[in-house]
Design a protein around this nucleic acid. Structure first.
Lengths: 347, 347
DNA sequence: GGACGTGGGAGACAGATGAGCAACAAGAAC
DNA sequence: GTTCTTGTTGCTCATCTGTCTCCCACGTCC
């Protein structure tokens, strides 16, 4: 209930002490020697007046605003942004920081990205989180370097900025292993056609896991399409039309898996009895609502947001040297979320 | 590329004038009389040094931070939040403001909401946007009143705070009209069981539109369930099992419509040939990806975010008196988004 | 006359703002 | 023709915003 325009000096007058003393008491300044009685007077005066500190003035003096900037791509179009923001917000709140958010578009010009960062800088944010909406290489605005910053879900083209990304390969391996463990020996992969790291990494995870299991590429067909429902449908039609069709299907993402569901339905194949399916992304809206529920690999967006914030704050407070972590991106694992789309193949 | 720690006084030294003059020039102070020559000197000095204003210091003096607080419910769990944020961010950016965002949970205690607002207040935000994730009545933290504020997607229990909400009734009417215009005369409604305004309003829109069309309640069955895919499925099974089953179905939301799709498929009913369906919400992930694409009613989240921000800034700048608008919530229309799930009924 | 216990004064942070001052010109009074 | 008045232009000084922090002051008791 902090009434605006109640300052430290109003508290000082009410408590009958100087502003210095109020500041000392309220901030628990270690070297200040003030009697318990006075401390009480100050504290209760502050309470009664509904005093709340003016963080601006504090910041001006201490050179620390307690604000972190977050520039996030495509806030509205993907649910991933929300999870990053949530992770960042909770981590920040836990340490007394707040988030200033600016949206940018994945296709925004470098100048516009730079203007976004500039706006954050003018507000004297203590650090900046730069979040992209899918794991890829981005060119960063130059002014980003003027405060500690961390990249979320991508790595910089130039390198040397701390970044946190998902373990695409590990996620793909978990997905394929789940199929393997259920007993499948013919497993197909429906991949994306975009040339992004995820495309390559998920494929690599798929391949190496099957190779290790002794399954050759004959039993591991791959079809690629645009990573949407329609693409998934088409790729699934193709892959399921093969002579020796796979009994397990790993899909690049949940949307493509949704397309695969439709393809299977049209072919009279029931999931999971005739075809086991695994997705990627764990988009609740899809994965949990498909019938049967889609087993999929979750992207650690919340965790990346929290990790990045945690370490950014450490850097701001001088507890960490980000440049040391900038050599290699930190990789967070992608856990498998089990639902009902996998079972043992008909022998 | 504003280097930090370059201040107005550095510019003053470089330009060979006083800081006052620099301030006058850079802010285009109307009453300041400064020669064009001096103005140029100042501006180019600022440019060269990469000067950027320190908004904190400005704010301390002017009592205006250029920051708006946005407390948003459940950022991560619904795509709606993202659209509100986007609308708010773009409107704010266009007028030189930035957003400070705090997440809260729909189920958070009043004390915790109050703490969120308090944090915003300590940062001296100029105004606050309070966004809930579904249109309902909320109890607001008391300290919200200390700066101009606008409610997004809800109305306050106490009333008298400016709010903007979607036109649920109009949206429902559009949905039903679309079915009517396609020639349907037996139209069912699958409703939500939660007691929220949307439930009542969509039902009212449904009823009045049909009554106006001369269709009695016999031809307009309603079934209610929890507003998820499963609930939609169950309600659809019931409604489609009726002797004279409807040929058109209006669903409370897209998730329930997704359940209806499944029910139809199981009954061998093809959409839209045997059953036309309309949803509500326009959740892209579902509506655009269902097969056939779901015709649905869009909620104006982006527009509400933008409207609220626009008017909040007007209030902050004294161009509007929010208390005048607080008497009745502003209602934004919900447009119908046509896809492929409606056609004429088989005669 | 130190040591100790208590507390206060005066910048500084970065910039905004309105009153005020110097310099000069034109017009007026003598 | 000199001095005074008045006005205008161009720019600066002092002060203010709310808080922190270094340094100093005052009184008391050994």
């Amino acid at each position: 209930m902090s009434n605006k325009n109640i300052g430290i000096k109003d508290v000082a007058v009410a408590a009958g002490v100087s502003v210095t003393t109020v500041s000392h008491v309220l901030n628990d300044v270690s070297y200040a020697r003030i009697s318990p009685v006075t401390r009480d007077k100050v504290r209760s005066a502050a309470e009664e007046l509904g005093y709340g500190p003016n963080r601006l003035a504090q910041a001006l003096r201490t050179q620390r605003t307690g604000m972190l900037g977050l520039v996030s791509e495509d806030i509205a179009t993907t649910p991933h942004a929300g999870r990053i923001i949530l992770g960042a917000d909770e981590a920040a709140k836990a340490r007394g920081y707040n988030l200033m958010i600016i949206n940018t578009s994945g296709s925004a010009s470098l100048a516009s990205r730079q203007a976004d960062v500039e706006a954050l800088l003018e507000h004297q944010v203590d650090g900046i989180l730069y979040a992209t909406m899918y794991h890829r290489n981005v060119e960063l605005p130059a002014n980003l370097g003027s405060v500690p910053s961390v990249l979320v879900d991508s790595v910089a083209t130039g390198g040397n900025i701390t970044a946190v990304i998902p373990d695409e390969i590990g996620g793909a391996r978990s997905a394929v292993r789940a199929l393997l463990e259920a007993g499948h020996t013919r497993i197909g992969f429906i991949n994306n056609t975009d040339d992004v790291p995820a495309t390559r990494h998920r494929l690599r995870g798929f391949r190496t896991t099957l190779t290790e299991a002794g399954l050759d590429s004959e039993a591991a067909p791959v079809e690629s399409e645009v990573s949407e429902v329609q693409g998934g449908y088409e790729a699934a039609r193709r892959i399921l039309a093969r002579k020796n069709r796979p009994t397990g299907l790993f899909c690049y993402n949940d949307r493509m898996a949704m397309g695969a569901y439709r393809a299977a339905a049209e072919l009279g194949l029931s999931i999971p009895a005739d075809l086991s399916v695994v997705g990627f992304d764990d988009q609740e809206l899809i994965a949990a609502n498909l019938h049967p529920g889609l087993t999929t690999v979750a992207l650690p967006h919340y965790e990346m947001g929290a990790w990045a914030t945690e370490h950014l704050i450490d850097a701001v407070e001088g507890k960490t040297d980000l440049t040391l972590m900038a050599l290699h991106p930190t990789i967070l694992s992608c856990p498998l979320v089990r639902r009902d789309s996998i079972t043992a193949p008909r022998q």
